[in-house]
């Protein structure tokens, strides 16, 4: 460490930021895994259908597949924009 480093302001540790981002990302990607291959395509098509009527972003539609006993439950969560933005 050089003398000048003593005067420099310490940045937040970048490794902590990396860890935080990875924990979230890995959890997200694991949740999508194991689901049927058609899930991402279906999610996109549902999004397109809804977009015919209201303007929403990709992250406004959440598709989740859960196991409930021996039943698979498909959960569809759409966040609609506030009124006044309809086409």
């Amino acid at each position: 460490m050089g003398l000048m480093d003593l005067f420099r302001k310490r940045k937040p540790a970048s490794a902590a930021v990396a860890k935080e981002r990875l924990l979230i990302l890995v959890a997200q990607e694991r949740a999508q895994r194991g689901g049927p291959d058609y899930l991402p395509v279906m999610q996109r098509e549902i999004l397109e259908v809804i977009r015919k009527y209201v303007q929403i972003n990709n992250e406004d539609v959440q598709v989740r597949l859960d196991k409930d006993g021996d039943q698979d439950v498909l959960e569809l969560n759409v966040v609609l924009p506030e009124s006044g933005t309809e086409r």
């Binding site: 540790a13 490794a15 902590a16 990396a18 860890k19 990875l22 890995v26």
Partner: peptide, 17 residues
């Protein structure tokens, strides 16, 4: 670099994966 806070530590990698 781990000590300096700029590299993921072994514990971090174990926890994530």
């Amino acid at each position: 670099r781990v000590a300096e806070g700029d590299m993921l530590s072994i514990a971090d990698i174990e926890e994530i994966l």
